[in-house]
Nucleic acid binder design. Structure first.
Lengths: 227, 227
DNA sequence: TCCTCGACTGTACAGGCGTTCAGCTTCCTG
DNA sequence: CAGGAAGCTGAACGCCTGTACAGTCGAGGA
C-alpha cells in the first residue's frame, strides 16, 4: 500500500475526495463543538455532500468518529516518529517538540480536538495521555543518565509534571490566553511561556526545606452570596 | 434570607426537597456524562420525579444547568473564603488548599464537573480558571514579598504553572491515575504527587544554563501504520 | 452495446429530545 | 370550612436525530 511521498502543494477543497472532505469536516466540527454537535447532517453540509453519502462511506456516524480518531492518531504519530536515527536522544526530543508545536499552531483545531479527547474521559484520551507521559518519562530518564537532569526521587510523577507544563499551552490554550492575556499565535507570548518554564526548572522557586507546596489550589469566587 | 447553620447530620435522599434532588441529579449527570447526556428525562428519572417537575421548578433545561453552575460556584466559594482573618496569608493559603482537597476527595464528581467546565470552553470555565490563576498570582506575590519564594521574572506565567500543577490531580485525575497507575483516593499516592511537586520547586531539575525545555511534548503513537 | 459497480442523492421512518398544557393532589391560610 | 397557591403528573406537540432504502448517474470491462 505504499504511496509516493507528496510534495507540500497547496490543496484546494475541490481536489480532495468526498471521503476526505467528510473526514475533515467531521474533524473540525468535533474539535470545535464536540461529538454530539457534529451531526451527520452538519458534517454533510460542511463537506458539501448529502447526509446519505456520509453513511455510504463510513457506515454510521460512529464510523466517521472512529475514522477521525485514527486519523488524528496517525497525524500525531507522524509528528512523533523519529526521522533521523543518527540524532542523539536530546536532539530527537527537541525535534519532536518543534514539530509538535509547529503542527498545533498550523492546525489549531488539533489542540481543541485533543482537549476534547482528554476531557471527554474516553479510553482514547486516557491512552494518548499515557503514551505522552511514557515518552516524557523516557526523555527524563535519558537526561538523567546523560547528567543533564538531576535524578528525581519519583521519575514518573516528575515526568508527568513536565509533560503537563509542556502540553498546557495546547490543551488549555484558551484558558491560559484568557487568564494571562496572552496570544499563543504570537511567537513572543509562546516564548514567554517557555522562558518561565525554563526558569522554573533551572532555578528552584523555593529554598530547600521550606515547602509551601507551591500550587495555589484556591478556587473560584462566589457568584451570588445571598445569606 | 439568613439560615441557621446546620449541623453535619447525615442526609438521606428522602429528606431533600424535590428541587434539591433534581439539582443533585443534574449535577451528577452533567459531571459524569456532560450536559448533552443529561436529558430532562434522565435527570427526572435519577431524581425520582417526573420530567414535568424538572421544568416546573427550573423553567427549562437551561435553567437546571444554570442552577447547577451557580450551585457549584457557591460550594467552591465556601471552600475558598477565608474563615479566620487572623491567620497569615501563608496559613490561609494552606487552609484553602486543604479544604479544596478534602472537598474534591469527598465529592469526586466536583473534579469531573470542573473538568467538563474547562473542556466546554464556556465563559464559566474561562472565568473560573482566570480567578484561580489570579489567586495563584496573589499567593506567589505574597510569598515573594515574604522572602519565601525567589522573585520570578514572569510572575503571572509562573503562578499559572503553579496553579496547573496544583489542579492537575483534580482536573486530570483519571488520566494521571491511568498513566501513573496511581489512586488519588489513597493518601500515599496523593502525597507522592505533592512530594514530587515540592521537590520540583525546591531543587532545580536542570543546572542553570542548560535548558532542555523540560516538557516532553511527544505525542501519541501510530495506530495502524500501513504504508 | 450491455452490464455492473461504485459514487451519490431524496425520501421516509422510528425514536429521543425539549417544551406545553390541562388536570390532579396536597397543603397552607384566611 | 372554603379557596387558592404550590407541588406534581401524563399526554401530546413539533423538531431533530441516526439510519434504511430505493433509485439515479457515470465510468469501465466483457
Amino acid at each position: 500500500m505504499g504511496r509516493a511521498p507528496e510534495e507540500a502543494t497547496p490543496v484546494r477543497p475541490d481536489d480532495l475526495t468526498a471521503r476526505a472532505r467528510i473526514r475533515n469536516a467531521a474533524f473540525a466540527l468535533i474539535a470545535q463543538d464536540g461529538v454530539d454537535a457534529a451531526t451527520v447532517r452538519a458534517i454533510a453540509r460542511r463537506a458539501g455532500v448529502s447526509p446519505s453519502l456520509v453513511l455510504h462511506h463510513f457506515g454510521s456516524k460512529q464510523g466517521v468518529v472512529d475514522e477521525v480518531a485514527t486519523w488524528v492518531a496517525d497525524v500525531l504519530g507522524d509528528v512523533t516518529r523519529d526521522t533521523d536515527p543518527r540524532a542523539g536522544p536530546a536532539e530527537a526530543h527537541r525535534r519532536r517538540q518543534l514539530r509538535f508545536e509547529r503542527m498545533t499552531t498550523e492546525t489549531p483545531l488539533l489542540g481543541a480536538y485533543l482537549r476534547r479527547m482528554l476531557l471527554d474521559g474516553t479510553e482514547n484520551g486516557l491512552e494518548w495521555f499515557t503514551r505522552a507521559v511514557d515518552a516524557s518519562v523516557a526523555g527524563l530518564r535519558q537526561r538523567e543518565a546523560l547528567g543533564i537532569a538531576r535524578p528525581s526521587a519519583d521519575v514518573h510523577v516528575t515526568a508527568a509534571m513536565l509533560a503537563l507544563l509542556g502540553f498546557a499551552p495546547v490543551l488549555l490554550r484558551p484558558h491560559l490566553e484568557h487568564a494571562l492575556r496572552l496570544d499563543f499565535d504570537d511567537e513572543d507570548d509562546r516564548r514567554r511561556w517557555r522562558d518561565a518554564e525554563t526558569a522554573l526548572l533551572t532555578s528552584a522557586l523555593y529554598p530547600r526545606g521550606t515547602a509551601p507546596d507551591g500550587a495555589s489550589r484556591a478556587a473560584g469566587g462566589r457568584a451570588a452570596p445571598d445569606e
